[in-house]
Every structure is written in structure tokens, then in C-alpha cells.
Nucleic acid binder design. Structure first.
Lengths: 300, 300
DNA sequence: ATAATGTCTTTTATCGTGAAAAAACATTTT
DNA sequence: AAAATGTTTTTTCACGATAAAAGACATTAT
């Protein structure tokens, strides 16, 4: 097993959804753009669609024969990239207990446990190291620094610095900038979510990320934009294992976002600063209270 | 050739220097700590030292028989890590011209050109990506973003934010903190260098890095500390290819550092801020003037 | 009994290999 | 002739294998 065909399977699944909408599929290059894969993969997909009787394929003509059934789809778990699989596996071990700071990480063991090659694990760890949770000892093992209170504080310190700056840059953007329309759209989504927060509170995470990324992008600084990956990763996994008061948390956050948006639209730097600080403060507080006390970082 | 023994060769070379100082070598574990390698490697080193008649080795006794000659040392280029080799090779291509922004980077081609496996190149690129100069297209090639004016501006923006904060944290450190002694030592080195700047100006880089790292460490924030790696990398390579006005540049910088150090020692936050800003401003200016104008980033 | 040396086992670093996917080139269709 | 399809080549991704290096265990010396 040298390389899984998850790119094909994922694109195939997404391709199935196109069948509902049209009576015949567009050209191969067009499909490639639509699904974000190469023509090679598109042709593999079309070949299978023909095989399973979904379409009749002859050169340019790709006629839809029937609507896709649930069993036409590849199972979800087969569409994940290896690095997603490794990441999930690793994060589960890290957050779902038993991961002490200072612990050493064994590439070979991890690889065996997850059932993948060592190369993939190595590459994952290298990529993951930028999150500041692990560190490599020169030609030796990796060391886990732990998801500690210190980590959360260091993370939020940078986050606050970056976001305050980005928010100020955002407010200073000219009126004809496209971001204002994006902001309006996000505002509407926030309003909608606020109204139905009782049932849809779990949809907030995704909205939250889009909102903050929009703001960070105004900094026009790749280091600031990229740093949001660290924040997003931490929030994503952390709140997956910590659902305490999720509804209340998100309800408060939506309200703060709306105030923050209003401040941005006022373009009054003072108001922006206040609203931003208020939101960041409660975000930090939420994160910190969810980390057990007394957990001290063990540094060499 | 599955793995070069550069760890051994480098440790061996460093080990040779120990022979000048003593008549007999310490125990194997002690040597391991001294040279930063495992006992396995120490024993390989001792075996060779015995073979070449440098020492007489019998269990605990490791008597020095003769002083090492120049030809006892392994050639410098054999002591480099693969990633160092790849990095140098890559940076030469990047900085020494011909590297347009938007250009695509081919792992296989790079690997062939340097004469290493693709895995090592891949791992290097992943590690290197945190410097913000390259970017990966999802399951496809890497794209060079280029060492442009925009890059330099984004880099210095973060640098200034981080250093101002670190400097303030430094000045606020209690009098009994060990850093003040470190600062005194660095001050002495600066004074010494300032006196002999005419001949030793090329030694400034190394001192510069140590000084700024000391300050950044005061932030107690891993993201700030780690970010200095980006700065150090850029400065290291950039000034290796750009020696224009090196002496003048460094002369000014030494003076600014001394003022900066004095400000820190005064523990007056206003003075620290002023001195720090002044130095950072001239550092930015120096970096920017060395980048050709009109070179625009090509973004998708 | 502590700390060294001697020996054996495990892990890391790197390569070559092969399938998946992308990209390039050639041919046909509109 | 522009854009599609058909075909071939190249590149990326991931694995298992192997030597270097680290680490663990057993034995011996002080």
C-alpha cells in the first residue's frame, strides 16, 4: 500500500453531488477546476461513474442516467488524507488525557499504533512542531511540551497582539474595499445564528473561524495570517474534547462578535479597540478555565 | 548510502581538540555529555583514535599518545547534516539570483540536483515553510513566494512588535535575575568589538544574534522566541550574499546596541522603548535598502 | 554499591521503489 | 484555431528496508 487514493474518493463523492443538479456533466477540464483535482483524477471518476451506471460516457457526452444513491458514496473515513488521520490520532492522545508534559514521543511507536509508515509520522511531527506543543531533540526523539496553562497564556498573548493590530488595520480600510461586503455577510450570519442559538450553537465554531480570519487578513502580514492556523487548530481540538457550557459560551461570543462588527463598521479606532479587547478577554478566560489548574510546564 | 555518519565525524573532530588539553580522556559517559552524543558514538570515536595512534585505549584508561595533526580531522564538508546541505543549496538558488516569485519548486529536481533522496528534500521544505517564503499547493508542487520587499516589511513588522514587548519585559525583570549578568557580559563583548571594529566587523553577526535572543527570551513566550529563528535565518543568508557597507552597518549597529543596553540597565521603560525603536528602525532600513526596488510579490 | 565498560535492542535518518495524481504532449472534434 | 479528448511522462506521496546513532540491559571494575 504505497499511497491511498483518497484524493480520487473524496473528489468522487463531491462529484456525485453534481449529478443531482444537471442532466449532463461539463468538460473534463471544467470538472477538474470544479472539484479541484487534475484531469487524470477526473477521468478515473468518470470511468467509475460509467461503470456503476450513473452516467453514459462517450467522449464529450456525459449524460446523467440516474441520481446517486447513498451506497454510491465512498465511506467518509476513506476520503481523509493520511496527515488528517495522523493528526486526529495524535491529538486524541494529547488531549484526551494521559499526556504529561516532558513525555517523549516515539516516531516508530506512533507509526505502528496508527498503522502508517514512519515517514508520514515524521512529516506530520515536523509540520506540527510549529504549533509549539512539541520539540525535537537533535538526532533523537521528540519531547511533548504539553497543553498547559503556560501554553494557553503564550498563545493568547500573541493572538491578542495580532488581532488588535489587524482590527485596527481593518477599520482603516477604504470604504470601497471588498472586505466591508464580506463583513456585512458575516454580520447577517451572526444575526441568524443569534436568533436560533438554542438549537444551532454548535455551528458557531465554523463562523467564528471565518470571522477572525477575515479580520486577520486585513493585516496583510503572512505571519499574522498564518498564526491563526495555530489558534484554529487549538480551538478546534480543544473544544471537541471540552463541551462544557458550549451553548452559553457561544451565545456570549456571538453577542460580542456583533458588538465587534458594529465597532468595525463605525471605523472608530477607539471603539474597535474596546470591542476587540472585550471579546479577546472572554475568549482567553474561556480557554483558561477549561485547563486544569496546577498543571505546570516542565522545562529543562 | 542510507545515512551518513556526520554525527560521528563532527563529534570526532571536536573530540580531537580535547586531546590538546589533557593527558588522558575521561569516562565514556562523560565524553558523551561533553560532545553531546551517545556512548555508542563515543566508542566509535575512541576506536578510531586508537587505530590512528592518537590514544592508547584499554577499558578505563585512555592515554593520549600524541597531539592531533591537521590531517587527523575529517574534512569540514563531511560533518554537515543533510538538512544543512539542503538548506545551503536551496538558499543559494533563492538568494543568488534567478529566483522569481511565483516560480514553482520541484522536489524531485531539487533532490537530484543536490544528490539526496526526495524524503529529505520534502522534510526540509516542510520545515522551511514556516519562514513564509514558500507555500504548498494541496497535493501538488510548492510555490516560491520570493524574498521580496513585501516579505521584508512583514517580517520586520512582527519583529518590531515582538522585540519592543520583549525589551519591556526584560527591563522589568527583578535585579537578581541571571539575565543582568548575561547582559553585562554581552556589553563587555560589544565594547571590545567596538574598539577593534575596523578588523573584526565580520564577527558582529554572531554577537547580534546572541544579544537579540537574550532579549527575546525575556518574553517567556515560545512563539516570540521561536520567531527569532526566522529573523536569524534571513539575516544569516541575506548578509552572506550582500556585503555592501558591512563595516559601516555593523559599526552603527554596535553603537546602537550599546545605547540599547544602557537603556535596559537604566530600567526606564521610556528609554528602553526609544533605544529599541531606534535600533529596529535602522535595522529595517538596512534590510530594505539591500532589496532591489520594484520587485513586486506575485500573488494568485 | 556505584560507576564504568561490554553487549544487545530499539529508534532515527535516509534511500530506493511503486502506486496515485498531476502535468505535458499528441490527437481529435467542433 | 480553440478546446476537448486520448496518451505518455513526470512528480508527489507513502512504504519498507538498512546503516547510523541512541538507548537499555548485563557484566565488570573500583
Amino acid at each position: 500500500m504505497s499511497k491511498s487514493n483518497n484524493v480520487y474518493k473524496d473528489a468522487y463523492n463531491r462529484g456525485l453531488r453534481l449529478l443531482d443538479e444537471t442532466k449532463s456533466l461539463p468538460s473534463e477540464p471544467e470538472l477538474g477546476v470544479l472539484l479541484g483535482v487534475s484531469r487524470t483524477t477526473i477521468r478515473t471518476i468518470l470511468a467509475r461513474m460509467e461503470e456503476t451506471g450513473l452516467i453514459a460516457w462517450n467522449k464529450r457526452s456525459k449524460t446523467v442516467l440516474r441520481a446517486p444513491r447513498p451506497d454510491d458514496f465512498f465511506p467518509e473515513e476513506e476520503t481523509d488524507t493520511l496527515s488528517q488521520i495522523i493528526e486526529r490520532s495524535f491529538m486524541r492522545r494529547l488531549l484526551a488525557g494521559g499526556a504529561e508534559a516532558g513525555m517523549q514521543i516515539n516516531e516508530l511507536e506512533l507509526a505502528r499504533e496508527i498503522g502508517v509508515g514512519t515517514t508520514s509520522v515524521r512529516e506530520f511531527l515536523i509540520r506540527f512542531s510549529r504549533f509549539g506543543l512539541i520539540e525535537k531533540r537533535r538526532n533523537s526523539h521528540w519531547v511533548l511540551k504539553g497543553f498547559t496553562r503556560a501554553f494557553a497564556l503564550e498563545l493568547t498573548e500573541i493572538r491578542e497582539m495580532f488581532e488588535l493590530r489587524s482590527a485596527a488595520a481593518f477599520a482603516a480600510l477604504p470604504q470601497d474595499s471588498a472586505v466591508w461586503a464580506d463583513l456585512d455577510l458575516l454580520e447577517d450570519e451572526h444575526r441568524l445564528l443569534a436568533r436560533e442559538i438554542a438549537t444551532r450553537f454548535n455551528e458557531f465554531s465554523e463562523l467564528d473561524e471565518r470571522f477572525h480570519r477575515l479580520i486577520h487578513r486585513a493585516s496583510h502580514n503572512r505571519f499574522i495570517v498564518d498564526f491563526y492556523d495555530v489558534i484554529a487548530m487549538i480551538f478546534h481540538y480543544h473544544y471537541q474534547w471540552n463541551k462544557a457550557q458550549e451553548r452559553e459560551r457561544n451565545e456570549v461570543a456571538v453577542t460580542e462578535h456583533l458588538a465587534y462588527i458594529a465597532a468595525l463598521k463605525s471605523r472608530d479606532l477607539g471603539k474597535v479597540d474596546t470591542a476587540c479587547r472585550k471579546h479577546l478577554k472572554s475568549a482567553r478566560h474561556t480557554l483558561l478555565t477549561s485547563i486544569p489548574e496546577g498543571q505546570q510546564p516542565q522545562q529543562a
